[in-house]
């Protein structure tokens, strides 16, 4: 197990590579999703106020 995390002495290059990839891919998934939800909520409240 320790051997796995050590990556043959290259841990400080291998793991940051994977970490930053995961972070950037997550952001690209999360940000538009979040924005989409916000827009939907905005539109809903606007629509609601028009009907009243």
């Amino acid at each position: 197990m320790i051997e796995f995390f050590n990556m043959g002495g290259y841990a400080m290059f291998v793991w940051p590579s994977y970490a930053i990839s995961a972070l950037v891919l997550w952001l690209n998934w999360y940000l538009p999703r979040n924005q989409h939800r916000k827009l939907l909520r905005q539109l809903q409240s606007r629509h609601g106020s028009q009907q009243q």
């Binding site: 891919l25 690209n28 998934w29 538009p32 999703r33 924005q35 989409h36 827009l39 939907l40 539109l43």
Partner: peptide, 20 residues
């Protein structure tokens, strides 16, 4: 696959914004 996934999500947000 991730590209298509992220693209669809981004497109949906962009579509809503433009065609509100």
């Amino acid at each position: 696959v991730y590209y298509v996934l992220a693209l669809f999500q981004q497109c949906r947000a962009e579509l809503l914004r433009r065609e509100r």
